[in-house]
Amino acid sequence: MTPLSFGVALVAFVILGPLLGCFLTGADRIITARMQGRVGPPFLQPYYDVRKLLAKERRSLNSFQGYYLILALIMTILSGAFFFAGGNILLVVFLISLSSLFFIIAAYSTRSPYAEVGAGREIIQVLAYEPMIILLGVFFFLITDSFDTSAVASLELPLVVALPLVFAGLLFILTIKLRKSPFDLSFSHHAHQELVKGITTEMSGRSLAVVEITHWYENVLFLGYVGLFFVWAPPSTLILAVVVALAVYFLEIVIDNSFARVKWQFMLSWSWIVSLLCSALSLVLLAVLNGFVV
């Protein structure tokens, strides 16, 4: 990764990230509505929502919350830029964790009991998905001998062939990362829930708009993780990666609409079981593939 490629990726991600994220969310809401026998909102509804939130009166419980949320947004953008520029995957993972951290601090800073419960649940979600994400980086290194995401471009076969179980593990925790049912514990996009609005309870107007935009960037980045498994030497495989990422997003919508929210104990234990099983079995599989010479 050169400074130039990073600059290009940064500009592209800043501009295209929210566009794609907004379209994805718009499509999600229409597909969800159709699955429930409704017509659903206009395609650009997420954009209208954010525009409305930006036009609302400026009021906030304290002066820090807004800064924390902006920091979360910046970390997400940097993380995505490193990812799409072919940068270090560990850096990508840690930057996005930092973003979650700022989001959690923003919720805690309000001292609202509802927001605190939401923030607590967000921490549990981070605990649940983080092992798999780190292991993803480790396995990435085992296959490509590099932590740079650009290394996939020199592979002869896509990562998914060597690491099918790691991909399966990623799919499992992706539901948490995309904030989809049954793992949308800290806040969900669906209207009513028991905790007012979870971690975003005290975020209103502009702050909520920033949260929404951050989520658009995140969605694009996480679908990027999925696409990473389907890119290898020929550049045309990028198209395959996009198609697979969209298919996975559709699958997530189906899951979102078919399951009710679970308890955090279930989410935490099963994400860890799936993460550890997938990675242990992947090691065995790799050993077999390499003729026991790992």
Binding site: A33, G40, P41, A191, H192, V196, K197, T201, M203
Partner: peptide, 15 residues
């Protein structure tokens, strides 16, 4: 289907 008009039922006065 009031979501056709962008209407969402929130439980949160701040939203």
């Amino acid at each position: 289907d009031v979501e056709r008009f962008g209407i969402i039922n929130t439980g949160n006065p701040k939203h």
